[in-house]
Structure formats: C-alpha cells, structure tokens
Amino acid sequence: MSHMDEMSLVDHLTELRTRIIRVLAVLVLSMIAGFFAAEPIIKYLMDSIPVGTINLNALSPWDGISMYMKFAFIIALVITLPVILYQVWSFVSPGLRPIERSATLRYIPIAVILFLAGMAFAYFVIFPLAFNFTSSVTRNLELNEMYGISQYFAFMFNIVLPLALLFELPVVVMFLTKLRILNPRVLRKIRKFAYFILIVVATVVTPPDFISDILVAIPLLLLYEFSVLLSGMIYRKQLAEEREFEEEYGEEQHRHEQTRTGPSRGGDIVS
C-alpha cells in the first residue's frame, strides 16, 4: 500500500471517528432531555390499554430508575436517528454524484417517518395482540396477573423496536440502490430467502398464534415488495442517466476527434 493510500485510509478513519463522536454527543444530550420527558410518557403508557386494566409492580429497588434510563434512551434514539442518518450520508456522499447526493439526502425524513410509523403500528396493533394472548394463557392457568414494570416494558420494547427498525427496509434498499450495491434483479433473485427471513422475524416478535403472525408478516412482505418497486424505479432512472451521459459524451468525443484531425484528404482534393 502506498503512502498516499495510507494517508487516505487514515483520513477516512479520522472522519469516521469524528462523525461517531458527533452522534454520541447528540445521543447524550438527547438522553438528558429524555429524562425530563420520560415520566409523562411512562404514566401515559401505564394508564393506556392494555396495561391500564392491571397494576404494575416494582420487583426491584432499581426498577423505577431502570424505567427512566430505558425511556430516556428510547427517546434519545428517536431524536438522534436523523443525526445518525445524516452522518452516514455525509460520510458516503463524497463518492456520489451531485444528483445522487441531493436524492439520497431526501431519504432522511422518509426514514424518520417510517421509523415512527413502525413504532405506532407495533404499539397500537401488534403489542395489544401479543399482550392479550399471553394474558389469556395466564388466566386459563388461573394465575394471578402481577406484572413487574421492568418486565412489562421489556416485553413491549422487544416487539416495538424490532418492527420499527424493519420499517426502515424501503429506505435502506433505496439508499443501497443509489450506491449501486443493490438492484431490482438481485432483490427478485433473493425474494424467497427474504420472505423466509421476514416470516421468521414475524413469528419471533409475535405470540404463537397464526392470526398475529399473519398480521405482522403481511406488512413486512408488502414492505419488501414496495422496496423492490422503489429499487426498480431508481435503477431505471440510473440507466437512463447513464445512456444520456454516454450519448452526450460520445457526441462531444466525436466532435473533438473531427476538430483534431481536420478536413479529410478527399475534401482537399475536391477543393
């Protein structure tokens, strides 16, 4: 490896470290703000269905503090998500063309909206189904429902966060297509494997009943097909831009060769 390549690698690593430090700084500041926002959010969720019908208990002296920490982190994660995406975009943007830079920058608000939509879908649709299913099993066994607050919210987070992240699939696919790492042909080729993975995920994050699995699996499969559609649109646009560039560049090169060689010998004889 040449000295120039070593310097280039060092520069990239230095830039990566700087961007990671920026993300961590925003995350820490957001967590401080999250501590103040945690209490009203926790109380709202405790008063909402399905937990509003039961009592949550502290099973450890640390449960209350643990709840503040966990909710502060989740709030900070949501606030920091646009910063994380922007830093990732800034890191890879020098390798993109100007039109690709502006196009991929617009993915950031879309990614945030999809993340929030995934959280809402998981909390309002899937989580009540999962909780009611497990609660019905508990009642069938004639057990007293006494839930620890830490275990209850851990159960909720294990459903909400994975689904929120899975809702980022279209943005990830669009971004990788712009970077020419993915294309619709590859996505169609791995469709069966992707379907299998998404169905496994849907089965893991939902209670073991067929209806809940279907309610999660169908949106995930639709998200994948939507991702394939978006990838196809971006890929066709890339091909069209390449054809226009080649045509324009080819004409310029042809004119340059004519200017350099001058008039043909036959033209001199006629004149």
Score class of each variant (00 low, 15 high):
Leu45His: 06
Lys189Phe: 00
Val205Phe: 10
Ala117Ile: 09
Leu179Arg: 00
Ile110Arg: 02
Tyr224Thr: 03
Phe226Val: 07
Leu220Ser: 14
Phe91Tyr: 12
Leu45Gln: 12
Ala164Ile: 04
Met46Leu: 14
Lys178Glu: 12
Pro128Lys: 14
Val28Ala: 12
Glu248Ile: 01
Ser271Gly: 09
Glu242Lys: 13
Phe115Gln: 04
Ile113Met: 09
Glu225Met: 09
Ala217Met: 04
Ile149Gln: 03
Asn55Val: 05
Ser135Phe: 15
Gly148Thr: 09
Met119Trp: 07
Leu105Ser: 15
Arg106Cys: 15
Arg185Trp: 03
Pro94Asn: 07
Tyr235Phe: 03
Glu241Cys: 00
Phe153Ala: 08
Glu168Leu: 00
Tyr107Gly: 02
Ala72Val: 03
Met7Phe: 06
Met119Thr: 04
Phe71Gly: 00
Asn57Gly: 04
Thr53Pro: 00
Ile108Arg: 05
Arg97Glu: 02
Gln87Val: 08
Ser231Gln: 06
Met119Gly: 02
Ile99Gln: 10
His12Glu: 03
Thr138Lys: 15
Gln87Phe: 07
Ile159Ser: 11
Ile110Phe: 12
Leu24Ala: 07
Phe175Lys: 02
Asn144Cys: 00
Tyr123His: 11
Thr104His: 09
Ile49Glu: 14
Arg180Phe: 15
Phe133Lys: 11
Leu187Arg: 13
Glu246Phe: 13
Glu244Arg: 10
Phe196Tyr: 07
Phe131Thr: 02
Met1Gly: 11
Ala38Cys: 05
Ile42Cys: 06
Glu100Ser: 13
Glu100Val: 10
Gly148Pro: 03
Glu39Ile: 06
Pro207Asn: 00
Leu179Val: 05
Phe155Glu: 00
His3Ala: 12
Gln238Thr: 09
Leu85Gly: 00
Pro40His: 05
Lys192Ser: 15
Thr261Ala: 04
Asn55Lys: 00
Asp213Asn: 07
Ile32Leu: 13
Ile75Lys: 08
Glu145Lys: 02
Phe121Val: 10
Asn132Ala: 00
Gly95Phe: 07
Gly232Asn: 14
Thr80Ala: 10
Phe133Pro: 10
Leu16Pro: 00
Lys237Leu: 08
Tyr86Arg: 01
Leu114Pro: 14
Ala117Asp: 14
Glu246Pro: 01
